[in-house]
Design a protein around this nucleic acid. Structure first.
Length: 461
DNA sequence: GGAACTCGCCAC
DNA sequence: AAACGTGGCGAGTTCC
């Protein structure tokens, strides 16, 4: 696939973008080297203890006997061979190359208690090797300087490396805290994070202009993910707080995957087994996670969804309704867009870039959205950088994660910075790019002065 | 001893 | 008819 800017504005966006990202690199992100060293030692000891425990198990001893040469508990090849060839267990799923899978999902399904031990070891090693070691290795005088690249990603997004600033743990509470405890603002400063709300969904709407989607974006009393949760799980009296988990499952297991081009079989599996922790096959009372005070399986059974295959059929109907009724114009745009690509061999983004070359249907549909959404962030980043520099402010941009930017703020400038950010992202951007036909919004998260990247200041509303 | 691959897992 | 988009990175592994 080839990419190139078709307009002077597109060229300038990347030219200015590189310079602004370069300044963020030079500024860097402060790390607590002493904490990192201590935590690494603590994790190493914990990992050694768990390794010892694992090696004392019968499972390990049996495994060891079957290995020619030296056993390595971190070799997935050895583990797969032992589980699926020696013990002749049926693999819950396979990898791309056809080997029995040994990822978390597969090992949990096997339901062998001692393997949970291995999963814990893996998790702790990941934290130590990928994050803490990388910070210690890359830091210079207590600052890491992650690179931000604009020339590597097929969809015109950015990437980051050395260390990668764009995959710092966030979802797993325990892991998130260990890693983010290491990241600080400059002395007597505070971190803030500016996040575009639902940016890709909104930018997609700029292409397809689906009225139902635009209503979901413009009318704050509506709730797309809530509506989908209601429909998917047949909830009579939906409440955002009570059915929080089901809403999350609908959002991350159905809505987003559908936008990326996934289909009902994967979505049903993902929601039932991944989110609700229900088994494949038919369901019995008392299975899966708890929703309020009832089990997921009890809820599903009470709605006539008594097995994964029944749920799959149900999700298929929902998918048909999703694209056939709810977001009909969006679906029609996808078809038109793909036809145009097949006719001309390229697609033009609203931001003035052209992509040509061999692309799959999903790529053709996702690229313009991901690309243009990131360009909104990049434009805001450049503008913010310009204003901070022009006004000789002490606040600095230090990083960016596709639809968010991170700043190291002098507390005396906090209010001004918040005003500037809101004006740039919610007003100036849409005034500059006329194709933006929906409101854009940001969420600003503020952290304690001298606080690390876990110490958020909770605002009262 | 390095390049290139697979696998698993972190982010959006 | 087919079926999840974009990255980086570490460990293990294979090949040269």
């Amino acid at each position: 696939m080839n990419i190139n800017p078709r307009t002077p504005e597109a060229y300038k966006l990347f030219h200015d973008g590189i310079l602004a990202l370069c300044r963020a690199e030079q500024q860097g992100f402060r790390v607590d080297v002493e904490y990192i060293e201590n935590k690494k030692n603590q994790l190493t000891r914990k990992i050694e203890r768990l390794e010892q425990e694992f090696q004392d198990s019968d499972f390990y001893k049996h495994w060891q006997h079957t290995v020619k040469g030296k056993i390595n508990i971190y070799s997935n090849q050895q583990l797969a061979h032992f589980l699926y060839d020696i013990k002749k267990i049926e693999p819950p799923k396979e990898t791309v190359s056809g080997q029995g899978a040994t990822d978390e999902d597969a090992l949990k399904t096997l339901n062998i208690p001692v393997l949970n031990n291995l999963l814990t070891i893996r998790k702790l090693k990941k934290v130590k090797d990928t994050y803490l070691d990388a910070f210690a290795r890359e830091q210079v005088n207590d600052y890491i300087h992650p690179f931000f690249n604009l020339h590597l990603v097929r969809t015109f997004r950015s990437s980051s490396d050395s260390p990668n600033f764009q995959n710092i743990p966030k979802r797993d509470e325990e892991v998130m805290k260990i890693v983010r405890r290491a990241l600080f603002p400059r002395p007597d400063h505070q971190l803030i994070e500016v996040d575009f709300s639902g940016l890709e969904v909104r930018i997609a709407a700029c292409y397809h202009k689906d009225p139902n989607m635009i209503r979901y974006i413009e009318d704050k009393t509506t709730d797309m993910h809530g509506d989908m949760a209601k429909q998917i799980f047949k909830i009579d009296n939906f409440s955002k707080s009570e059915h929080h988990v089901l809403r999350q499952a609908a959002k991350n297991g159905f809505v987003f995957p559908q936008f990326y081009g996934d289909y009902f079989v994967n979505c049903a599996n993902n929601m039932a087994c991944g989110w609700l922790k229900l088994p494949a096959g038919s369901w019995k009372k008392g299975q899966g996670i708890k929703i309020q005070d009832i089990y997921a399986s009890d809820h599903m059974i009470s709605k006539g969804l008594t097995s994964l295959s029944k749920f799959e059929k149900h999700v298929q109907e929902i998918e048909e309704d999703f694209w056939g009724n709810r977001f009909k114009d969006y679906a029609e745009w996808k078809e038109r867009w793909y036809k145009l690509y097949k006719k001309y061999g390229y697609i033009d983004l609203v931001t003035g870039f052209r992509c040509s070359g061999v692309m799959s249907k999903n790529e053709v549909i996702n690229t313009p959205v991901q690309g243009a959404a990131f360009h909104c962030l990049l434009w805001s980043f450049i503008e913010m950088d310009k204003r901070l520099t022009e006004n000789k402010m002490d606040t600095k941009l230090i990083g960016q994660i596709h639809d968010s930017m991170i700043l190291d703020v002098n507390p005396s400038e906090l209010e001004e910075v918040q005003r500037m950010v809101r004006k740039i992202t919610c007003e100036d951007l849409a005034n500059t790019w006329q194709w933006i036909n929906v409101p854009l919004d940001v969420e600003i998260e503020t952290y304690e002065v001298n606080g690390n990247w876990t110490q958020k200041i909770e605002e009262d509303e």
